Amino acid sequence: MPDVSFLIAAFNAEHTLEAAVASALAQRDVTVEVIIVDDVSRDGTLSKARELARNEPRLEVLAQQRNMGPAAARNRALATARGDWIAILDADDYLAPERSRTLVALAQERGSQIVADNLVRFRDDAPEIVWPLLPQRHDDVPYDVDLVDYLNCNRMTGGDSTLGYLKPMFSGEFLRENGVIYEEGLHIGEDFNFVLKALCAGARFTIAPHTFYFYRAVTGSLSRRLSAADIERLAAANDSLLDERRMEPGLRRAAAAYRRAAWDLAAYCEFRAAVGQRQWRAALERATAPRLWGTMAQMLAHAARRKRAQRLAAGQAMGAQRRHQQG
Rank of each mutant, 00 (worst) to 15 (best):
H210L: 08
T211Y: 00
V148K: 02
E232I: 14
R233S: 02
F212I: 00
I231L: 04
Y165K: 08
I207Q: 00
R225S: 11
Y213Q: 02
A203W: 08
R204M: 10
V148R: 07
E173S: 06
S221I: 13
H187Y: 06
F170C: 14
M169K: 07
G189T: 15
L175E: 01
H210K: 01
D160K: 12
E232A: 02
A217F: 07
F212A: 00
P209C: 03
L226W: 03
E232R: 14
F174G: 12
L186T: 13
R224W: 02
G164V: 14
A217D: 06
Y150E: 01
D191T: 15
N152F: 12
E183C: 04
H210F: 13
F170S: 10
L199C: 03
R216Q: 07
V218G: 08
L151N: 03
I207F: 01
I231G: 01
G164K: 15
S221F: 04
G179I: 10
C200Y: 03
E184M: 14
N193S: 15
T157P: 07
G172Y: 05
T157W: 01
I181Y: 05
V148L: 03
L226I: 11
M156T: 15
F214Y: 12
Y165G: 14
T211D: 00
A208T: 06
L166M: 07
Y182Q: 06
P168E: 00
S227I: 10
N152E: 09
R176G: 14
I207S: 00
C153F: 12
G202Y: 12
L151T: 04
N178I: 02
L226N: 04
L222F: 06
A203P: 12
H187E: 06
E173C: 15
L199R: 02
L151E: 05
T211S: 02
H210Q: 02
V148F: 02
G172W: 01
L175R: 03
V180F: 07
G185D: 05
L199I: 11
G159V: 08
L222H: 15
R204T: 08
D230W: 06
E183W: 14
P209T: 00
E232P: 10
R233F: 03
T162A: 04
G158A: 12
H210T: 05
M169L: 13
L151R: 14
G179R: 03
F170P: 11
T219R: 11
P209V: 00
E190I: 09
R233P: 13
V180D: 00
T211A: 11
F194N: 07
Y165Q: 11
G172D: 06
M169T: 08
G172L: 05
H187N: 04
T219Q: 10
L196Y: 09
